[in-house]
């Protein structure tokens, strides 16, 4: 159980609670038996469907019942229904699971059921996509509400990507960029939003819709903002590392090193400044040794060693990692 505080119950309190629970328990068990008996006899009736609604409202984790519910729809409710009735049933299930998600935002089975519902929405009247569009468009609003409630819910982010990829009315990907900007500006620590941003950019670059070099420049500005706001926040540093990548661009690498050095002057004990400088300077030496020359390379590596030693006292839990890098640097020097 996640995040439920422990309470000390006396034996009497436990007994009293169990007595109070008795009627609920009996009701739950008899409802379970009832649904399972119908399932066993391949009952695809509306009554069976309603019974699953009742049971799932008590226990949305009971995936067997979600499975049964879908089978009741496929083999029963849908069989003699016109497409508009099927659409109504599915839309209603989407509404029902919206309510369920509010109470249980991390239950995989509810999210799965929504996907199934969406994928089974029939074509609209006269072959139009109207019903599909209406249902899928509503999903984006639902998932945005879920992310307003918990901006790091990975179920919601995954679902968001799923909806964006499959919705019949595709939005321009730049709209998603704007969404992540909003999320990041609301909270720089939201790594989920930074992550999403990196994925959207890759897609936009690969399709040629945006110019990578120009984007990177603007992104470095945004992330610098975040780094200065809270130099201890990992999210921005991780994203920064993505922007730098393998450090092939000498100009960017050098100017970012200078920018972090500036921040380090303000925050001389910043672990993330030191750590990143070690990483980027090693990239500089590895990729651009020809440009910077032997002497400068050696000076930079000496600085790295100094910083790693400083990190070992600043960030003791990870001192062995810094030692491993130090060992590798001294082997390389020999």
């Amino acid at each position: 159980m996640h995040g439920t505080r422990r309470t000390r119950e006396t034996p009497e309190a436990i007994k009293a609670r169990k007595e109070r629970e008795q009627s609920k328990l009996k009701e739950y068990l008899s409802l379970t038996d009832h649904v399972m008996a119908r399932k066993k006899s391949s009952d695809w009736s509306k009554e069976a469907f309603d019974a699953t609604t009742k049971l799932l409202q008590i226990n949305p984790e009971f995936y067997t019942v979600w499975n049964y519910r879908r089978n009741v729809m496929l083999n029963g409710l849908f069989m003699n229904s016109t497409p508009d009735i099927i659409n109504d049933i599915l839309s209603e299930d989407l509404s029902m699971t919206t309510a369920a998600l509010k109470a249980h935002p991390k239950v995989y089975w509810i999210w799965n059921h929504r996907r199934w519902c969406l994928e089974n929405v029939p074509e609209g009247p006269a072959g139009t996509q109207d019903w599909k569009k209406a249902n899928w468009n509503r999903e984006l609003a639902v998932v945005e509400k879920m992310l307003d409630a918990d901006a790091r819910n990975f179920h919601a982010w995954n679902y968001r990507r799923y909806v964006l990829a499959n919705t019949p009315e595709q939005r321009p990907e730049t709209a998603e960029l704007a969404y992540t900007t909003r999320k990041i500006e609301a909270n720089f620590s939201n790594f989920s939003a930074w992550h999403q941003r990196s994925k959207v950019y890759v897609s936009l670059w690969e399709s040629g819709k945006l110019n990578k070099d120009k984007c990177i420049e603007a992104e470095l500005e945004l992330v610098k903002n975040a780094m200065y706001t809270d130099p201890n926040d990992q999210s921005a540093w991780l994203y920064h590392r993505w922007l730098i990548g393998d450090g092939q661009n000498h100009h960017i690498l050098a100017s970012e090193i200078a920018a972090i050095e500036e921040l380090l002057e303000e925050q001389p004990d910043s672990k993330w400044c030191l750590e990143s400088l070690v990483h980027y300077r090693r990239l500089l030496v590895r990729n651009h040794a020809m440009v910077i020359g032997k002497e400068e390379s050696e000076r930079i590596l000496r600085q790295c060693i100094e910083f790693l030693q400083q990190l070992q006292t600043l960030d003791t839990p990870r001192k062995r990692r810094y030692q491993d890098i130090l060992d590798r640097l001294s082997v390389a020097k020999q």
Binding site: K18, E21, Q22, L25, Y28, L29, I58, N59, E61, F62
Partner: peptide, 12 residues
């Protein structure tokens, strides 16, 4: 077995 939680977690 007389605890509701025990039955609510049968799927696990």
């Amino acid at each position: 077995k007389d605890d509701l939680t025990y039955h609510l977690t049968a799927h696990l």
